[in-house]
């Protein structure tokens, strides 16, 4: 589930970095959630801060 995935991501910087470089398999979440997760992480403004997230999605 998405919640557990993100909780694990936040505890594991390595996992977060693999997600950023598209090396992480995202099992257990829907396709639209995967797309949203990848897009939100990809839209963060400062790529040097691994744990920073872009919380304002444009819509």
């Amino acid at each position: 589930m998405l919640k557990e995935l993100i909780q694990n991501l936040m505890k594991d910087p390595g996992m977060y970095a693999r997600l950023q470089s598209n090396q992480l398999q995202l099992a257990g979440i829907s396709e639209v959630e995967q797309r949203a997760l990848v897009d939100v992480i990809g839209s963060r403004s400062d790529k040097n801060e691994v744990m920073k997230s872009m919380f304002w999605a444009k819509f």
Partner: peptide, 23 residues
């Protein structure tokens, strides 16, 4: 809020509903 992934999770949920809307 940042380190627990609260903002990340909520942003992803918001965007998920927005993508559902687009679809």
């Amino acid at each position: 809020l940042e380190q627990t992934g609260t903002l990340l999770y909520t942003s992803v949920r918001m965007r998920t509903h927005y993508y559902n809307y687009l679809e």
